[in-house]
C-alpha cells in the first residue's frame, strides 16, 4: 500500500537553513547538506528545499547545495524559490533536483507551469500555493506571503492541475510558524477538489498534527520544518507515531 510521506522542509538563505515565524524573524538552523544527511538517515521520504534568498547574486548557492546533497542522499529532492522560467527548472533538475516547486511565477505566468510540465513531465512540477483565509474563502498570496492576488485557492488549485502540475504544496499562511496544526478544512477542501497529490504545510507543532493532516485533511504528504530542525521530534519518531495511529508509512 502506498505510504503517506513525511517531508522535512529546509528554508535556505545565504547557504544556511533558517526558519521564520509567519515568514519573518529568521532563525539559523544549520548547514543544509548536514541536515539533509541527518533527515535521510532518520527515514525522511523526501526533502524540500526552499530558496528564500532575496538577491539573485546568491542564486547559484542553492545549485551547489543541491549538487552536494544529490551525491549522497538518494531520496526525492524538491527545490523551490525564485523559479521564473523554464531555464530555471532545467538548472535545478540538472543540479540534482527531482521536482521543482513554482509559486509566485505560477501566478505571474501560469503558462510557465504548462511549459515546464510539457517539457519535463508533470512528475517534476510542484505548484506551491500560499493560502490565507479572507472572509469566507481562501485566497492565494505570493511574494513570500506579502501580496494578495484575489485568486480563490480552490479554483487556483484546479487550474494548476489542468495546466500540468503533478503535485500541490499547500501552505496555510494563517498557520505557518504558529505550531497550532494544519488548516485541516483548507487541506481537505483542496484534496477533495483535485486528483493530484497534496502536501499539507504550515502550522505543525506536534506529531498529532501530522496524523490530523492525513486523517482529517486527507493530505497525501505532510511537510514540516521547525519541529524537526530544532530537535523537538525526530523524523523516525514522527513516522512511528503515525503508524501507531493507523497511517501507512515507510519505516
Amino acid at each position: 500500500m502506498l505510504a503517506k510521506r513525511i517531508i522535512p522542509c529546509l528554508d535556505v538563505t545565504h547557504g544556511r537553513v533558517v526558519k521564520g515565524v509567519n515568514f519573518v524573524e529568521l532563525k539559523d538552523a544549520g548547514d543544509p547538506v548536514e541536515i539533509a544527511r541527518r533527515y535521510n538517515e532518520a527515514g525522511a521520504d523526501e526533502l524540500t528545499f526552499l530558496d528564500i534568498t532575496a538577491s539573485s547574486d546568491d542564486r547559484d548557492l542553492i545549485l551547489h547545495i543541491i549538487e552536494d546533497v544529490a551525491t549522497e542522499v538518494f531520496i526525492p529532492l524538491t527545490v523551490g524559490g525564485g523559479v521564473r522560467e523554464v531555464g530555471d527548472v532545467q538548472r535545478l533538475l540538472n543540479a540534482g533536483a527531482d521536482k521543482v516547486s513554482i509559486n509566485t511565477s505560477a501566478v505571474m505566468n501560469p503558462q510557465l507551469v504548462k511549459d515546464a510540465s510539457d517539457r519535463y513531465g508533470s512528475q517534476c512540477i510542484v505548484v506551491a500555493i500560499d493560502s490565507k483565509r479572507v472572509g469566507d474563502h481562501w485566497e492565494v498570496f505570493t511574494h513570500g506571503g506579502r501580496k494578495a492576488t484575489g485568486l480563490d485557492v480552490i479554483e487556483w488549485a484546479k487550474k494548476m492541475e489542468s495546466l500540468g502540475a503533478g503535485e500541490l504544496l499547500l501552505t496555510s499562511m494563517d498557520r505557518d510558524g504558529t505550531k497550532s496544526g494544519f488548516d485541516l478544512e483548507l487541506t481537505r477542501a483542496i484534496s477533495d477538489a483535485v486528483d493530484i497529490p497534496i502536501i499539507a504545510s504550515g502550522g505543525v507543532g506536534n506529531l498529532q498534527h501530522l496524523v490530523d493532516g492525513v486523517k482529517e485533511g486527507r493530505a497525501d504528504a505532510v511537510l514540516a520544518a521547525s519541529i524537526f530542525h530544532f530537535g523537538e521530534y525526530g523524523v523516525d519518531e514522527a513516522k512511528r507515531y503515525m503508524k501507531q495511529h493507523g497511517i501507512e508509512v515507510r519505516l
Binding site: 502506498l2 505510504a3 510521506r5 477533495d192 486528483d195 497525501d220
Partner: peptide, 20 residues
Amino acid sequence: HEAMRDDQGNKLKVPHMGWN
C-alpha cells in the same frame, strides 16, 4: 479514473507518487 478508490472508498491520487 473510476478504479482509483481504496478499500474505504477514499480517492487515490494520480500520479501514483510515493513509496509503495
